[in-house]
Amino acid sequence: MTPLVEVRNLVKHFERGGGLFRGKTVVRAVDNVSFSVNQGETYALVGESGSGKSTTGRCMLRLIEPSSGEVLFRGENVLGFSSTRMRAARRDMQMVFQDPYSSLNPRMRAFTIVEEPLIIHGIGTTAERRDRVAGLFKLVGLDPAHLDRYPHAFSGGQRQRIGLARALALNPSFIIADEPVSALDVSIQAQVINLLMDLQQQLQLTYLFIAHDLRLVRHIAGRVAVMYLGRIVEMGRTADIFANAQHPYTQALLSAVPAIDPDAPRARIALDASRVNRDAPLRQIAEGHFAAVD
């Protein structure tokens, strides 16, 4: 299978501090990350705060510019694209953000929020866009009668649907979803997850799912990469990672998730930092299963 998206040796360094008498320190937010996402699959990037998972996603769409590396989309390195070419490429690669409260402009009506990408890309007449937006509203399970409302009139789950409608407006094939349900209540999460799975089937979407919720990742992702301090420390088929984690960080992370069962044995594995060799390269443990262990 040819990958739809391939990330090669992606690096993002942020410089921090630095003043008259103090040198700058470099934060290696994303430190030589490589993975690929196949057509039609859901690939998850997991990790805790500061692991670099969101920065990786943003660099892939060049919402922030990476320091070095390649992001191949359908075989072409988008990091070499001019800004005009990049804008065109973004029709096919879209992002859904975590916080449905801050990611929608409060002064724009839901209709305008979803219509905006169509205008930017010069698609359709006013009437055609009106129809398209109404269609998108229905697609994500919103009532087109509410098109003229402002974001504050919608619940969190509905706002996330608006964000999704906007992301889908240009018929993308690839969607990066950065913690798309983590701000939502569990019953609403279930609805949005179902919607994301339905849309994937219906529109043949490919997802990169950035998440910290391992239960959710196990449910929706076919493959997963675990990030720790800017690097991928383990990746492979989700079932293999959950059944047979090799990296000490993955083991600690998986064991920290509370079971939905009061009788489940608690077997916490504490992360022993001395067991982590940060420079260990990823090596193949089993078919398609890689871990950065010596």
């Binding site: 019953s187 196990r218 449910h219 989700t238 939905i260």
Partner: peptide, 19 residues
């Protein structure tokens, strides 16, 4: 029942039942 059915954890890829 609905809250418990909303939590991912069953067969991967299946629809969540929800509330």
């Amino acid at each position: 029942k609905g809250l418990l059915a909303s939590i991912p954890g069953g067969e991967p890829g299946t629809r969540l039942k929800g509330v």
